[in-house]
Write a protein that binds this DNA or RNA. Structure first.
Lengths: 252, 252
DNA sequence: TCGAATTTGTGCGTATGTATC
DNA sequence: GGATACATACGCACAAATTCG
């Protein structure tokens, strides 16, 4: 029965009768209108909330929240011209001002990252990677998180040890590596989705429990991984666009 | 309070005290053990179910369902050799038996699909696309849904009007189109994530409210779209892998 | 094969706390 | 401060599915 009530309300939303921000009938209101119990009315609203079509504000009411059309994040074409920041290029193409804050640390890579970077077993507590955490913003609004790891074996003693330091700050991994003679020629991205952690939701100013699209990106120079990153974007704001030509691949 | 109970149970799962397939305490059992009401105990179990850590079987109990390490679905390399079914190739590479069921219909394309296929305005109620709904299985288990649309303008009157009919049944869009002289050379995939609909969760035998990764795939012959598909895979089972070589792209 | 016991799912009613208007 | 609304908790009842002797 609560499913039927939910269907009725959903129909009013999808038909356009109720619009973004409109208030849905209250639990007591629904109950008396439809001659059902408050519990059942509450169950029906919970269905819509779990579907992401509504949000409840305690004390105020339950409100329609239409899924926004997600922006597109291009994950392929810009690699043709690997100069400058891919994120800034993508945002500027959409007329938005890109920015970011970051925080770099030199640490010992955790096991999973060792694996992704094909590092040998850790020696004692030697620091062997630079980890940089980014918060990317579009028009001052935080929209993407990224944590990147670069092995010190590649960059130690060069001018680009720290990603956001020196001449090539903010120009992207590929260009920085090129400047020290490391030619990145392969990329692999592994895309998944999950609920955002409390921490991620807070940094992105999203409601806790939001769905995040995750990307594990790795860059290779030949067979050698030279950078890997965990990228997190809220699924309700972004879709990732991959494209290519048939018959072309990185694994030939 | 139900959140605290959920935390206790979750701890038993993540610590390994409860294993895959083990039965969680029943609602009446929890209620009497912890001196809480059955409703509260039920709420606690619902939390774990919504987190994907448990599944309830009506009449039997609630059982632990550990998140598997997601399988990788390769979305790029096979396009180098566009013959046969990409899904089957991918599953066989992982030692799993691939299969599918399908249902084709000739219909008038809805507005969003018209847009994706660059179709002109609908004329009356003329049927102008073949829509095929697939349920893909790996080792008999449903793992992926796909709905594809092909414009009749391309295939009308040929031997490959129906995707799963005739000589080239089950060999993939690219090979079928090639057989009628349509050379697919570009592909675009738009990846997002959202909660699964009730219908999708049921078809994939997932708990309702599971997170799904969605792909809008389009194939192009030159600038002309010749097929588009909505693909849905459960995020807790699959990660998508894209890869390529730097400096190569479909948009040069 | 049948039936009793158990378990989940759903629904009703009620009460309390707390946030919002 | 008062009215309204959601969130959570309690108790009870019955249907449907499952399990097991």
């Amino acid at each position: 029965m609560y499913l039927q009530v939910a269907d009725q309300l959903r129909a009013k939303i999808t038909s356009g009768e109720l619009r973004e921000g409109d208030r849905l009938p209250s639990v007591p209101g629904l109950a008396s209108d439809l001659r059902i119990s408050r519990s059942t009315a509450s169950e029906a609203l919970k269905v819509l909330i779990s579907e992401g079509l509504a949000v409840a504000r305690s004390g105020a009411g339950t409100f329609v929240r239409l899924p926004r059309e997600p922006q597109r994040l291009i994950r392929a074409w810009y690699r043709a011209r690997p100069y400058g920041s891919p994120f800034r290029q993508d945002m500027e193409r959409q007329g938005r001002a890109a920015g970011w804050t970051y925080d770099s640390q030199t640490i010992q890579a955790p096991p999973e990252i060792r694996n992704r970077l094909a590092l040998t077993e850790a020696e004692g507590d030697t620091e062997d990677v630079v980890r940089t955490h980014y918060v990317f913003t579009a028009d001052e609004e935080p929209v993407m998180l990224s944590t990147s790891w670069e092995p010190l074996a590649t960059t130690r003693g060069t001018a680009v040890v720290l990603p956001e330091d020196g001449m090539l700050a903010g120009r992207g991994v590929v260009e920085r590596m090129l400047s020290i003679g490391v030619v990145i020629d392969d990329w692999v991205e592994e895309v998944g989705a999950r609920l955002g952690t409390a921490d991620e939701c807070e940094q992105l100013k999203h409601a806790s429990g939001s769905i995040m699209v995750t990307i594990q990106r790795s860059y290779y120079a030949g067979k050698q991984p030279v950078e890997t990153a965990d990228i997190v974007v809220p699924a309700d704001r972004f879709a990732l666009v991959y494209s290519g030509k048939m018959g072309r691949t990185g694994e030939e």
